[in-house]
Write a protein that binds this DNA or RNA. Sequence first.
DNA 1: CTTGTGAATGTCACATATGACATATAGACT
DNA 2: AGTCTATATGTCATATGTGACATTCACAAG
Lengths: 109, 109
Amino acid sequence: MPSMNARKRKRLEAAGWVVGTPQEFLGLSNEETALIDMHIALSLALRALRKRRKLTQAALAKRIGSSQSRVAKMEVGDPSVSFELLIRGLLALGATAGDVGRVIARRAA
Amino acid sequence: MPSMNARKRKRLEAAGWVVGTPQEFLGLSNEETALIDMHIALSLALRALRKRRKLTQAALAKRIGSSQSRVAKMEVGDPSVSFELLIRGLLALGATAGDVGRVIARRAA
DNA sequence: CTTGTGAATGTCACATATGACATATAGACT
DNA sequence: AGTCTATATGTCATATGTGACATTCACAAG
């Protein structure tokens, strides 16, 4: 459904994703959406696991040698955050490679 | 600087070194090791899938808007290559999110 | 031996991601 | 009201990743 694509695109762009080239005005490529979906899945999993561990963003930041502000960006799906940093965060919370793989495969952690 | 050690070991492993307990010798944490293992798994999967698709590195490079030299670095596990680029490569070869997840979980693609 | 094709490696200018810091917002509790 | 605590957001100097390019290597096939 095209209106779905338009809404999704608008939402992503509002979040800072640069997602459109002129020739792709009607929708994202499957690869782009898959990549963004994985990124979002990692973000959500990170927040969920951090809360399960009852840690603050500042505490997690200290574990991975980062800052509270960056952890916040990690969890809200900010596009400036790399996959590597997100995975680092999950591992620091005790997630295994299997856990990370399942998150990326979009199965619940 | 602990990341120096991580980078050093990546280089060593990428060059094919197999040593007894490099983790302890270089002072790597379990999380850093897991991260490197995932990176290597993605590299190997990329090469395997590209060959299955009977594409050259140059052909894959064109698909993802990159260069042959970078694809080569992706496949040999060069530490300068990001997770995102490796995943982009796999997706461009037709891999699904489930495939990528299984690779990261260290199950065969 | 030469030529061709695919892959590896090094370099570099430019782009993106990073931690640190400041600041803002939201809620809970006095 | 004010004051904690946790989280969100913006900026910026620097660290890291990138494509492009040149070169080199391996190994075929003429």
